[in-house]
Design a protein around this nucleic acid. Structure first.
Length: 416
DNA sequence: CGTCTTTGACCCGCGC
DNA sequence: GCGCGGGTCAAAGACG
């Protein structure tokens, strides 16, 4: 009897917060566990046992876990957005002090203010960039405006991200469909040259090798990797040693991740995408691109005049625009050598290289991020290169024409 | 047994 | 149309 009464009192306490109806009201979407619980309550008419309580607690814990996950995601997004906001402001500051800052700039800046805060995924921009190089100016502007508007609306109405992505995907599909008659969409690439004794650099992502080929003119085989972090992630990378200097490892990234990246990969992704965005903003709508002979760089800028150590090359051939970041030049900041370091195990591989600078141990992610976002000479060089590119492109001025797109880099960080 | 790498075959775009 | 070269596929083997 005593046992029964104590159990009853226990259930009395437990019953209230975990009442079947309450649970249903809370979630609007009863889980399997709560459904089972309801059945056991209703059918037997008996107070549920401790198993039921535990089940409910488990359900609650799951829900709480989901909420926490969502919160973490949101915090990550905001953090990245803020980082990119800073980067964008710095870029704006440089633009305002550059010669290309003219009256036309007002339009884009005004437009920017209108759409100031929307969280636009870089992938969207990259995808815009991917196809926009072959799209008509009017359509691109409409598309970008539409995207910005939708982002804003989504934020205001708290529309779920999935829905947003669906709409974007539809728009992108339409974009491609409408322009299919013009030219095929190009895919932008980011190529990184760095010294390494190892066959692959640790960049925070997980890669699956799917092919290897010996390219003509280079006895060193080129390895093809596919991102294996997300299901059907379209990102690919090619890894090849430089023929002229076998200590130099050339890693080329292509495509956009369709999944969240680990923190270790975000820095690099953010930096490379920022560089590429800058490039695409300058090369977008370039009519020269389609007339440029393949493999002949439309633009190649040695930045050594600005900084003897930083080198960024922009090429825009018939197949795809490519940004090459050369980190092989001897310099206290940019000269890199790899070394296995047991204290810095990278997620990619047990023997993934760690970049060592004189001062501290850094991953490639850190170094590239620093190289682009923190090294003023490199950043200035990038802008100088873009300005030159834009000027050489039929007088196209990225400062005036391109809708000021902040290099927002939220959750779906991209490599290219 | 599942995952990853290797490697030859195949596909496709491009130049001639 | 043909050949070449780059990129991808997929079967087989290796590995933990």
């Amino acid at each position: 009897m005593e046992e029964k009464s104590s159990l009853k009192s226990l259930l009395k306490d437990e019953e209230r917060p975990y009442d079947c109806n309450t649970t249903r009201n809370r979630t609007d979407e009863p889980s399997m566990g709560s459904t089972l619980l309801c059945l056991s309550l209703n059918n037997s008419g008996q107070p549920f046992n401790q198993m039921g309580i535990l089940r409910m607690k488990l359900e609650e814990a799951k829900k709480e876990n989901e909420i926490l996950k969502a919160m973490l995601t949101q915090v990550n997004e905001h953090c990245t957005v803020l980082q990119n906001r800073i980067l964008f402001e710095m870029q704006q500051h440089q633009l305002s002090s550059s010669p290309c800052n003219n009256n036309n700039n007002h339009d884009s800046q005004g437009e920017m203010q209108d759409v100031e805060k929307p969280m636009l995924h870089t992938r969207q921009f990259l995808n815009i960039g991917d196809c926009s190089s072959s799209l008509s100016e009017g359509y691109k502007e409409n598309f970008v405006k539409k995207m910005l508007g939708r982002s804003l609306a989504c934020e205001k109405n708290n529309v779920v991200e999935g829905e947003m992505k669906k709409k974007i995907a539809l728009d992108e599909a339409k974009c491609r469909e409408d322009q299919a008659s013009e030219v095929t969409c190009r895919r932008a690439k980011v190529s990184i040259r760095a010294r390494s004794d190892f066959s692959m650099m640790g960049d925070g992502c997980q890669w699956r090798k799917y092919g290897q080929k010996t390219a003509k003119g280079n006895p060193c085989p080129r390895a093809y990797y596919r991102c294996s972090m997300g299901t059907a992630c379209p990102v690919r990378k090619q890894v090849q040693r430089c023929f002229k200097d076998e200590t130099v490892l050339i890693t080329t990234y292509e495509g956009s991740h369709n999944h969240p990246l680990p923190p270790a990969a975000r820095g690099l992704a953010s930096s490379t995408s920022a560089a590429l965005n800058m490039f695409l903003c300058g090369s977008i709508s370039s009519s020269v691109a389609t007339t440029t002979p393949p493999n002949s760089p439309l633009f190649s800028s040695s930045l050594s005049s600005i900084s003897p150590t930083a080198l960024a090359t922009f090429s825009h051939n018939a197949t795809c625009p490519t940004v090459t970041l050369d980190l092989t030049h001897p310099n206290s900041n940019n000269y890199l050598h790899f070394q296995t370091h047991p204290l810095f195990p990278l997620p990619l591989h047990a023997h993934s290289p760690t970049l060592l600078t004189p001062d501290k141990n850094l991953t490639l992610v850190d170094v590239v991020s620093e190289a682009i976002t923190k090294d003023p000479s490199l950043k200035a060089a990038l802008f100088s290169a873009i300005s030159s590119l834009s000027k050489s492109n039929s007088g196209y001025d990225p400062c005036s024409k391109m809708p000021a797109i902040p290099p927002h880099q939220p959750y779906t960080t991209e490599l290219t």
